[in-house]
């Protein structure tokens, strides 16, 4: 995880424990973060992380999460994954 000004960059391959830590980290800082970027080449491997990103976006709609806007993730390990955020 890298913090650069108001931009946060995270990897998607977080374990459940790391996701919990990430949640704890971002809760008090949500107001100061403008963008959450994803590390290049990292692969979504948890629906819990996807849910957390959706929840963040739902809490602060102006938060920019380019990965979430894609609505799709394609990989050999998980196939094509679509998500619907409903907003």
């Amino acid at each position: 995880m890298q913090f650069d000004g108001d931009e946060l960059t995270i990897g998607l391959e977080l374990s459940m424990e790391e996701i919990r830590e990430f949640e704890q980290f971002i809760r008090p800082r949500l107001e100061y973060i403008e963008t959450i970027n994803i590390e290049e080449g990292s692969l979504l491997k948890s629906s819990a992380l996807l849910s957390l990103l959706v929840s963040l976006k739902r809490t602060r709609p102006e938060l920019n999460i380019p990965f979430l806007n894609q609505g799709i993730s394609v990989s050999a390990a998980y196939g094509t994954v679509h998500w619907m955020c409903h907003d």
Binding site: L50, S51, R58, T59, C85
Partner: peptide
């Protein structure tokens, strides 16, 4: 393989906990 995640029931942070599956 193609999958579709319905995230409609994921709550904002004040009601959210990543330990709980809300999908």
């Amino acid at each position: 393989i193609e999958s579709f995640f319905d995230m409609s029931s994921v709550a904002p942070m004040d009601q959210f906990s990543c330990d709980e599956n809300t999908l």
